[in-house]
C-alpha cells in the first residue's frame, strides 16, 4: 500500500472521515447515527492513516494511548448517568440544558455525553486492536 497517491490522499481522507464521524455522533440523538457508528468511522480513519503512514504516526497523532481513550470514555458514560440522582429520578433519566450560543440555542443533554462516552470507548478499544494488528503486519 506504499503508493504515492495513497500516501498523499490518506491524511486528507482521514481528516474528512474524523469530521464525518463527529457529525454522525452528534446527529445520533434523533436521526440515524450515534456514538457506536461514529466511533467505527473514526477508527476507520485511524486505520487508513496507519496503513498509509505507519502505526507510529497514528500513535503520535492520537496523543493518548487508545486504552486510556477507551477508559475515559467509559468513565464519561458512567458520569453521564449520575445527574438524575440530584433530581430524585431513576438512573439514566435524561437531563436537558438549553444553552444560548451566538444567537442560537444549543440543547445539551446527558444522553449526548453518554453517546460521546460510547464514541470514545469504541475509538479506543477498536483502534487499539486495529493498531496492534497493523503493527504485526509491519
Amino acid at each position: 500500500m506504499n503508493t504515492l497517491i495513497f500516501r498523499t490522499v490518506a491524511p486528507y481522507l482521514s481528516a474528512l472521515m474524523m469530521l464525518f464521524s463527529v457529525f454522525v455522533l452528534l446527529r445520533g440523538h434523533n436521526e440515524p447515527g450515534g456514538g457506536f457508528i461514529g466511533g467505527l468511522i473514526a477508527v476507520s480513519a485511524f486505520a487508513i492513516y496507519g496503513i498509509a503512514c505507519g502505526v507510529s504516526a497514528v500513535r503520535r497523532a492520537m496523543k493518548f494511548h487508545p486504552m486510556s481513550i477507551a477508559a475515559s470514555g467509559l468513565l464519561l458514560a458512567v458520569v453521564s448517568v449520575l445527574p438524575s440522582l440530584f433530581f430524585s429520578q431513576p438512573a439514566m433519566t435524561s437531563q436537558w440544558l438549553a444553552l444560548p450560543f451566538l444567537g442560537t440555542v444549543i440543547d445539551l443533554s446527558t444522553p449526548l455525553f453518554f453517546d460521546i462516552g460510547v464514541y470514545l470507548v469504541v475509538v479506543g478499544a477498536i483502534s487499539s486492536i486495529a493498531l496492534s494488528l497493523e503493527e504485526r503486519a509491519d
Partner: peptide, 12 residues
Amino acid sequence: LLTMAGGAISII
C-alpha cells in the same frame, strides 16, 4: 456504576 468507574480509572 462503581465497578465500571473503578475499572475505567484502573485502566487509565
